[in-house]
Nucleic acid binder design. Structure first.
Lengths: 190, 190
DNA sequence: GTCTATACAGCGATAGAC
DNA sequence: GTCTATCGCTGTATAGAC
């Protein structure tokens, strides 16, 4: 295990802070102070704030791809989709506090009309494409993207309300409902 | 029809700008300039930015209550829930651009850890309570709140993805899916 | 690579003239 | 009730010493 570089430490910290407090609401000073490095040093590694955002999005893409690769390595498509649905419960603590890391970033950048908006959307699309593939493998080729978007909408909606109300029971109920829905999809031919 | 007061004009404009660009991203200068009034005059009507936010939330609560009152005046509970579901399509243009006015505000204030967070949540709760009442009237007393939350989660999830992808067809499909779901709820006894 | 010091713009907020 | 002028703070970003 090699020691992380300063650059890597900055990206990891920015990733966390952008998630917990938002991109706009996180300043250079906050990131630098929380790492114990100076603002000046900061600019040696990243010329602008957008460059950090870019690196954070790239890091998230990388980590999410690894997660999907893990799921791909084991189980069938139905089991994999279930892993995605259950992610809401696995990350429940964070989601109740900060919402979905993907959804909240897309929403914030859309609102700021930010240039890297489409890059953030790539994160959402990563899951969309992956889900679509799983539904295709299940024999739902014709409406695979429709079903993928439905699963995404479910997870985003639950995340928004879970954060607003801090309600674990609600998450549990909705995940169970989605599990039941997935059963009907799995056991139906097109 | 009486001429709107300066205060009313400020609230209306802030309401619009907070929705379109977010609370944090909207400055006094932006609001004042867009109304053609000076920053100084601004502070005669509102001492702090939070006071404006408070007024905007109150205004939204008022307008949404009026909408629900209209729905209550005509049709049965099933028809009313359908009106709520179809709101996503009625306001499609705005939602594709700016998301849900209720959800995005709750998400932003949660993230800012803002003092008026709970007041924004009241907006969500207004719809939650109203939906719960409709499901109770449908004879689903036991799980009325569960169903209400499910409908809310649906609308929030669709709004997030509709904004990210600017996809009208997706909204249409999800609304149709929700309509079908409502049929199964309506025609099932507890 | 890391630091201190600083420039400069924009923010929320205040004082006081009209 | 509306204006101009200005303060103090924080934000992003830069320059230059070590």
């Amino acid at each position: 295990m090699t020691e992380p570089t300063t650059r890597e430490r900055i990206v990891a910290q920015a990733d966390r802070l952008f998630y917990e407090h938002g991109f706009e609401n996180t300043s250079f000073a906050t990131i630098a102070d929380s790492l114990g490095i100076s603002r000046g040093n900061f600019y040696y590694h990243f010329k602008t704030k957008d460059e950090i955002l870019d690196a954070v999005i790239a890091a998230r893409l990388h980590s999410r791809r690894q997660l999907l690769d893990q799921w791909d390595a084991a189980g069938g498509p139905a089991e994999r989709i279930r892993s995605f649905i259950h992610l809401l419960q696995a990350n429940q603590g964070k989601i109740l506090q900060y919402g979905c890391p993907v959804g909240t970033l897309c929403t914030e950048l859309a609102r700021l009309d930010h240039g890297l908006r489409e890059d953030a959307n790539q994160l959402m699309t990563l899951f969309r494409t992956w889900l679509r593939r799983q539904f295709t493998l299940l024999g739902r080729k014709a409406d695979a993207d429709d079903l993928a978007m439905h699963v995404l909408a479910f997870s985003q909606g639950v995340a928004v309300l879970a954060q607003a109300y801090h309600d674990k029971q609600f998450v549990r109920r909705e995940v169970a409902r989605m599990d039941a829905w997935l059963d009907t999809v799995t056991h139906t031919s097109t």
